[in-house]
């Protein structure tokens, strides 16, 4: 997901807000002290950091079983047996958790699965 805004676990959004417009500094001439920029820290709660994200694939009567198996092998690098096990779980139980871990990676997996036209979502582990 190259164009998604980057979200890191300890994300710190730094917004430098100059108190005066740049032009005003030149008008005053001579040495001017620029006020220290205000830095806003935006952090996630401990709960957000601790909980893994799940990549879930949902049942779809149109996608072929062999196609879904191939997609699981390609996206997650699973061996055929494991991919088939997940495919059958999707088929019989309606959904299967394919992967769990960091949110960014989970988003990337879901994007790849959507690229293969599978019904996939990510959700926070309960």
């Amino acid at each position: 997901m190259s164009r998604m805004p980057r979200r890191e676990c300890s994300r710190v959004a730094q917004k430098k807000q100059f108190k005066e417009p740049i032009g005003a500094l030149w008008e005053k001439g001579g040495a001017t002290t620029i006020e220290r920029p205000a830095i806003e820290k935006e952090t996630r709660s401990k709960e957000d950091l601790d909980l893994p994200w799940l990549v879930i694939v949902h049942n779809d009567p149109v996608n072929l079983m062999s196609y879904v198996t191939m997609v699981f092998q390609r996206v997650f690098g699973y061996p055929r047996e494991k991919a088939e096990r997940h495919m059958l779980e999707v088929h019989h139980k309606g959904r299967s958790v394919l992967w769990s871990g960091m949110r960014e990676r989970a988003e990337l997996y879901v994007q790849q699965l959507h690229g293969y036209l599978l019904l996939a979502t990510l959700e926070k582990a309960a």
Binding site: M1, M4, H114, A120, E123
Partner: peptide, 24 residues
């Protein structure tokens, strides 16, 4: 172009529409 998460994840769904959907 199905949603990537439950509708309660509003930010994620919005960003998805904006950045991922065009790529798809």
């Amino acid at each position: 172009f199905s949603p990537p998460a439950h509708e309660t994840e509003t930010d994620l769904c919005k960003e998805w529409k904006l950045y991922v959907e065009p790529e798809l």
